[in-house]
Computed example of a mutant assay.
Amino acid sequence: MVSLLLAAALGAAPSVPDPLWQCTAAHYRGFVSPSGARGNWPTVAKLPEHLRETRHITLSTPGIAPGGRAHMMFVDSAAKVVYIVQTSGPADTEVVFGPLPPVECPPA
């Protein structure tokens, strides 16, 4: 029983994203806040379906401000692009920014 619980817990542990995507998230995180996105980014009508149920990286949360916006970054590793989904108010109110390029990590 204990080994079953341990296996379930280990399987549910989030994996560490590729460093490229960590650096990309850190970069784009600087352009989003509960008040919205400050980037002049392209938008698409909706997030590509193959990304809808994948893991995402949270860039910002709505905070305590009424009407605050949350931002999640979805990675399309095959196409080497990201999409940032901005939601506010009802869950069906969203803006999808992208496709956006990855941002290389600075040299060590």
Rank of each mutant, 00 (worst) to 15 (best):
P17R: 01
L51K: 06
T24G: 08
T87W: 10
P62G: 05
S15Y: 12
D92N: 15
Q22I: 14
V81K: 14
H71M: 07
F31Y: 13
L51E: 06
F97T: 02
S60H: 04
F97S: 09
E53Y: 13
T54N: 12
G67K: 04
P99R: 06
R29I: 03
G67R: 01
L59D: 01
W41E: 07
E94I: 00
L51V: 09
P66C: 03
F31C: 01
T93I: 08
V16Y: 13
G39S: 03
R38N: 12
P14R: 05
K80H: 14
T58F: 00
A79R: 15
R38L: 06
L59H: 02
R29V: 01
G67P: 11
M72K: 13
A13E: 11
P34T: 07
P19T: 09
A79S: 14
V75E: 05
G98K: 02
K46F: 09
V81M: 00
T58S: 11
L20F: 14
F74Q: 01
P48M: 07
A25H: 09
W21G: 06
I84F: 15
D18R: 11
P19D: 15
A70K: 12
H50E: 05
S35T: 15
V44Q: 02
P34L: 01
D76I: 05
A13S: 09
G98I: 10
I84Y: 05
P90K: 12
P19C: 03
R29Y: 05
V96G: 07
W21M: 10
R29S: 14
H56F: 15
D18W: 10
L20K: 11
E49I: 05
P34Y: 13
V81W: 02
Q86L: 00
D18Y: 03
G98W: 04
V44N: 08
V96T: 15
M72E: 11
V16F: 13
E49P: 02
A65I: 11
G39M: 04
V85D: 08
P14N: 04
Y28L: 01
L47C: 12
V75W: 07
V16G: 08
A26W: 04
H56W: 09
S77L: 03
T87D: 07
R69W: 08
T87R: 15
V85Q: 12
T61Q: 15
I84N: 02
S33G: 13
D92G: 03
P62M: 04
G39T: 04
